[in-house]
Structures are given as C-alpha cells and as structure tokens.
Design a protein around this nucleic acid. Structure first.
Lengths: 227, 227
DNA sequence: CGATTAATTGACATATATCTCAAAAATTCC
DNA sequence: GGAATTTTTGAGATATATGTCAATTAATCG
C-alpha cells in the first residue's frame, strides 16, 4: 500500500466490508505493478493489504477474480478520463494525437496503476478491446475526413496499440521523458498517412493539463446483504 | 517435446550428456511457448523432456539459466539467418523492409521457437538489443541515404521493435496471415518518412523464399522409444 | 569381462501457495 | 449492556515447486 490507494479513498465512507475489499484492490494494484501479474500471489496481496490470508477469500474467489476487478476498474476510469478530455475535438488528426498523449500522461501519472494496466492488457484481451474501442472510431473518422490513408483494420489497430503500450512501458521505466506522448503521436500520425510536417505540428501542439479526478461517493444508506 | 526438437537433432552425434542437455532445451522451448516463461516450472520441463527432476540440475542451475541458454541460442540463429538473407541489399528502405518481413516469416515458421523468442524478449532486454542491433544500423543508413526523415534513437527503435513483436504475436496466434510482414513493413516505412506509394511498393515486392537452414540431416527413419 | 567413470534417478528436506473453516473479534442494533 | 450479526483471523489440510544427494544404472575402456 505505497501508492495513492484510490480504491480505499473512494470507499472510505462505505461499509467496512467495502473498505476491506477496496484495500485488497489497492494492494493488488501495487503487487501486480511490482511483481507482475503472473508472479503475484494472494499471500503477497494480503500482506500488502495488512489483512489475514483468509480475508481475501471472503471477497474474491482467487487471484484472477481480483485481477479482473482491478483491471476493468482501471480501464473504465481511463476510458472515462480520456472521454471527457476529448469532448469538443472534432478533427480526427487532433483526436488521435490527443488520445495517445492523454493516455500516456494519464497512465504514467500513477505508475502503479499504469503498470497494473499495462500488465493486465497482456492478460485480458477483451480489456484491451474496450480501451481501444473508440480509437477505432477516431481512426475511421480520419479516413472519412480524408486525413488518413492507411487501411483501418485489426492489424493496424493492434500495431497502433502495441506502439502505445511500448511507449507507456518506457515512460514508466523512466527511459522516456514527458515528450513520449508527442513523439509517439507524431510517429503514429505519419504511419496513418499524415504529412510529416502536419504530424509534427499536431503532435507537439500545446495540450492543456487535465488533473486526475477521483470520484467521491456520498455515504451509503445501504443496509442488508445476502445470507 | 512436440515440435522439431532442433537442439536434439543438432546434438544427435554428440555425447550423451550433450544430448540430454539438448533434450532439456527443446523441452524448455515447448514449455515456455505453451505456458509462458513465468508460469513454466522445472518440473514441467523435465516432464516434457522425459527425464527425472534431478537430471535438470546437472545441466542447469535453475529455470533462468536454461531460459537464457535457449533464448540466446534462438536469437543467435535468427540473427544469423537474417544476416545471410540480406547480403547484397544496399538500399536502406529495402533492407529495413526485408529485415522485418524475413524476421516475421522466420519466427513464425516454427511457432514454438517464435513464441519462446517472443516471451524471452520481454524478460531479457539485452537479448532484444542483440536482435535489434543491426536494425539500428539500417535505420541510420536510411538517414544518411536521405530515405528516412525520422530521428533514429532509442525511442524510435523501441517503437519499431514493439510493432514487430506485436505483429509476430498476431501471426503466431493466427490472427494475421502471411502478408503480416508486408503490411507491417509498409507501416514502418511510412513511419520512418518514406512516401506512401514507395512504402507500399517496397513492402509488397516479391521476396524470394529462403528456407530455414537448420542442420537437418536425412538419415535414419524416426523410430520411437528408448530403453 | 570387470573395473572405472559418466549419467541418471527419485526420495527427501525445504519452501511457499491455495483455500477452508471453526473460533475470535468487532460492529450493529434494540 | 448485551444479544445478534458481520467481519476477521490464522492454523491446518492439500498441493506443488525447488534443489540436494546417496544410490542406482549405463557407458566406456583396458
């Protein structure tokens, strides 16, 4: 529990069980980020969460279950953040560049989450599909706008995503600096068929900073449970 | 031991210990390909090799040691094959395209080796560096030849490699067909600054097939079983 | 063949992981 | 406060992995 403990914060007004569940999820994020998904163990997670081993199994069936809970939540948050950051941009070239840059900034702003997401994407392919869902729309838009000349299909999408994930990895490793998003966007735009000078201009144009918003949920009234 | 057992073949005239070592390496290739590097266990490898658990430790200290032995051997072979396949090509655009296409064809021609290489590349970063060593030279050559306009540095190389590995993965998974190499090469050339029409032409031009040259020796019908 | 060396074996000691569950502790509610 | 309920605990049953080593088996050689 060395990071922001976003799940725990979010749940701080909820029932005890909700808070414990959130603690476990935050711990899982840290452990996945530190050890990788495969090497992570339930024991490590409970140790990080500072709860007993048995407590884990009250909330999750096994490592896979908590992993997918964590991964899908992170993916959901990322998608939401990206979505709001892009309202009002109608030019496909800008949208594509912006999405790439925002994604990198977002995912590297909290390295634990970013690494957990990175690791999860290689395990849960449908997760990648969801993160990537409207990348596809933006690329198609670019074709109809006449800006992109590449054929938009699974192969291209997969290549595009791989470039992004590799850049994220380098960014999280400190091998790439804050301009990684712009550099990557430039390469991607070139690949899509945008003229080099335009690609450079769009990829490096100023982008107003957006802060990470943590949702705060009001106190629950919820009573009752099953069994 | 379901694949070509290339190490075993290669060692078939050597001492018994060399052959056992080779058996273990072939088994490791299969297990890494099937289970992934992290999930693979020494027990699985010895089971696949049909030797006792203790035999493993006579030849290798642990999983890491056999993994790096396997990975570096595969990488070495791949580099060698690529090298010979490219002699006589002096145009950087062609060289770059050719290397990508050959690499994909080679690595997907034996899926077990390809997958093992794929898995290893994410573990042994210096392995990637070695596979990538003369990619860097070709890219630099392209700049001096005036064909490439992108800046050649670690970021570009890493992006380029990630594209290639992702394509390999799709190819090995059956999600991409035999044209994956050409499609990828086209995208990479565009990214490097080659004009779209030239990129397409070079990436899709005929490439005379090169057969996998492993010391495959005729002789002796495979009869099964030992002892 | 018999002796010497090389190679293999698998039981064992050790470690660590998973998952369960009866009991204990904490919390809620009247 | 005290009974009822929720939540947590950690010992324990089970499983599987690692790495060692004395004993066994196979190969080699004079």
């Amino acid at each position: 529990m060395t990071a922001l403990d976003l799940f725990t914060r979010e749940a701080r007004n909820l029932s005890k069980s909700a808070r414990t569940r959130a603690r476990l999820m935050d711990a899982a994020v840290d452990v996945f980020a530190r050890d990788g998904f495969e090497a992570a163990s339930v024991n490590e997670i409970t140790r990080a969460a500072e709860v007993a081993n048995g407590t884990f199994y009250v909330y999750f069936k096994d490592k896979d279950e908590i992993a997918s809970a964590v991964a899908y939540r992170i993916a959901h948050d990322v998608v939401q953040q990206l979505d709001t950051a892009m309202v009002g941009i109608s030019d496909a070239v800008e949208r594509t560049s912006c999405a790439t840059r925002r994604f990198l900034d977002l995912a590297s702003s909290n390295p634990h989450w970013g690494l957990a997401l990175f690791r999860a994407v290689w395990i849960y392919t449908d997760l990648r599909d969801s993160v990537v869902s409207y990348l596809r729309a933006d690329l198609a838009l670019g074709v109809t706008q006449g800006a992109f000349t590449a054929e938009i299909d699974d192969f291209l999408i997969s290549t595009f995503s791989a470039m992004t994930m590799a850049a994220l990895f380098r960014r999280l490793n400190g091998e790439a600096g804050p301009d990684a998003g712009s550099r990557l966007a430039e390469l991607q735009l070139r690949m899509l068929g945008v003229a080099p000078d335009l690609a450079k201009r769009v990829a490096f144009q100023d982008l107003e900073p957006v802060t990470l918003t943590i949702p705060v949920i009001p106190r629950e009234a919820q009573r009752s449970k099953k069994n």
